[in-house]
């Protein structure tokens, strides 16, 4: 039987895949893709908990996370455009002007 732990382990795996992407990627746009993966894994976890405990709270939360992720993508991509216009590149290693 598929229990809650199955879903949670799956969510954990997806999260760490997303984390690996975040750590590996040098292109800002690809970084955003990896962030989306992490958000989605959280959503799966919420929905699973909500199902197994018979509570709608988890789904509500997942719902709001989707809303937040959407607006975040909008603003983030806008910023990315401005960044690209200014520096001409999206490679993280070239954008290290705040080196201390």
């Amino acid at each position: 039987m598929i229990g809650l732990s199955h879903y949670l382990i799956l969510s954990g795996l997806l999260f760490s895949i997303g984390l690996m992407g975040v750590l590996r990627r040098r292109n800002l746009l690809m970084l955003f893709f990896a962030t989306e993966i992490m958000l989605n894994s959280a959503n799966v976890a919420f929905a699973a908990v909500s199902y197994f405990y018979n509570d709608l709270t988890g789904q509500m939360f997942a719902f709001f996370i989707i809303a937040v992720a959407a607006s975040e993508v909008a603003v983030g991509l806008g910023l990315l455009i401005v960044l690209y216009k200014k520096f001409g590149t999206l490679d993280l290693d070239d954008l290290a002007s705040m080196k201390g």
Partner: peptide
Amino acid sequence: VFFLGGMVALMLVIIFV
């Protein structure tokens, strides 16, 4: 990167199991 990712996965699995 793999180490960190792997560690996180491992920890989460342990916690959830």
